[in-house]
Design a protein around this nucleic acid. Sequence first.
DNA 1: AAAACCAATCTGGTTAACCAATTTTTTCTG
DNA 2: CAGAAAAAATTGGTTAACCAGATTGGTTTT
Lengths: 233, 233
Amino acid sequence: MKLQILTKNEHKELHNDIIAKIRDLINNKNLEPGDKLPSERMLSERFNVSRGNVRESIQKLEFYGILKSKPQSGTFVADIGQVAMNGMMDDILGLEDPDFKSLVETRILLELKTVRLAAQRRTDADLIKMETALEAYKEKVLNNEDAVQEDLLFHLAIAQACRNSTINRMMLIITPEIINNFEKYHVCDKDQSLKGIQEHQDIFDAIKRQNTQKAKQMMKVHFNALYQYCYNI
Amino acid sequence: MKLQILTKNEHKELHNDIIAKIRDLINNKNLEPGDKLPSERMLSERFNVSRGNVRESIQKLEFYGILKSKPQSGTFVADIGQVAMNGMMDDILGLEDPDFKSLVETRILLELKTVRLAAQRRTDADLIKMETALEAYKEKVLNNEDAVQEDLLFHLAIAQACRNSTINRMMLIITPEIINNFEKYHVCDKDQSLKGIQEHQDIFDAIKRQNTQKAKQMMKVHFNALYQYCYNI
DNA sequence: AAAACCAATCTGGTTAACCAATTTTTTCTG
DNA sequence: CAGAAAAAATTGGTTAACCAGATTGGTTTT
C-alpha cells in the first residue's frame, strides 16, 4: 500500500468512512449485542485501509459506547441494540464542528447549574481555591494586565466545587474551544474586566453563604454581556 | 525495554503520569504559548516510556486544547497561558470516572434545555424524525417488548432538533454511559413504559406547537421518577 | 463418556522501523 | 560577504513486525 500523509480533514473523512462501513457490516451480518466483530486485520484488509486506521475508528466507537474491545480476544458490539446503534452512528457521523454560538449557549447553561450546585455543596477547601483564583484575577485587572486566564480559572474552580464529575468534564471540553473563539472574536475588553471583579466577588459571596438563588442570579448578570454579544453575531 | 501489556487502570495511571511530567516540563523550562515542546522521541526517552505512550498523552492534551501538533514540525504549547494551562492540567489529572448520579443530574439538565430549544427551532424534518421514533416506541411498548432503545432514540431526536452541536455532542457522550448504568441498576420497568407513552406524546405535541414552557414542563414530569430514584440511591 | 490438558492459532496491544514534509545547516555561487 | 541552492538532520505521521494472553480444537486421561 502507498504511504500517504493526510490532512486533518482527510483524516476525519477516512475516519467517518470506516465508521460507516463498520455500521453497514454490523447491519448486513445482523450482529447483535455481544457478538464479535471480525478482527482488526480482517477489517483493514476488507476496507483496504491500514490496521491503525481501523483501530482508531474502533476506539472512537468505544468512546461513544458502541463497541467494546477485550485484549487478546476481540472487539464486541455493546449492549445497546441495533436500533439505538444505528441512531447513534448516524448522530456520530453527522456531528458538526462546534460553532461559537452553540459553545456559549452551552457554557451558560452549564455554569448556571454549576454555580447553584457549588453553592449547595462547596467545601471549605473549594472556597479557598475559588478565593485564590479570585484574588489572582483582581490583581491582574487592577494592574491593567490581561486576566483571561485568571477569569477562566475562577470559573473552573466553581465547576470543581459543584461535585459533579460529568459536568466538570464537559466544562473542561468546551473551555479551550471557548478560549480560542474568544481570541478570534476579541470578546474581552478592559471595561468588562473591571465590572467583572465585582461580579466575581458577588458570585463568590453567594456561594460562600450558600445562597443558591443569589448565586445563580449573579452568574446570570455576569453572563449578560456575553449573552447579548453572542446572539448578535 | 521490556514489553508489558497494561490493564485499563494501569494504562490510565501511566497516561496521567506522562501528562503530569509534560506539565512539569513546561513549567520548569518556562515554555510560553507558541513554544515548541521537545520531540516525541526525546520525551519518550526522558520519561522512559515508549513513543506511542507519549503520542497518546499528547493527543489527549490536544483534545483539551492545551497542545497543538504540527505535522513534520513539532508539538506546540497552545495560546492559553501558563496559569490557565496549570489549572486545566490539574483538572484533567483530577477527573474522576462519572458516577451514575452525576450522569443523571447532567442528563436532566441538558434535556430540559434541549427540549426548550427544540420547541423553538425544530424544522418539519425534525418533527418527522421525532414522530417516527415516537411511533416505534409506542409499538414496542404496546407489544410488551423492551423499548429502551426506542426511548433513547426519541430523546436523541429532540437533541438533534435543538440545533446546538455542542449540546448534541454531550448528549452523545453521556448516552451510552447512562444506558450501561440503567442496565446495571435495572431502572426501567413496564409500568414506567406505559406512562412513558403519554409523556413522550405530550413532549412531542408541545414541541410541535412550539410551546416552550409546556415542553419543558412535560420533560420535567417525564424525568420525575428518574430524578427521585437517582437521589435515593 | 466426560473432564482435564496441551499445543496451535488467533486476537488486540505494543514496539520498532520507515516515510515524507519541514527545518536547519552546509555548501556553492555571484 | 550575501544570498541562493542543496544536502543533512529532525519531526510527526504511518506502516509492519512482534509480543503476550485468550481461545479453540483435538488428544489424553480418568
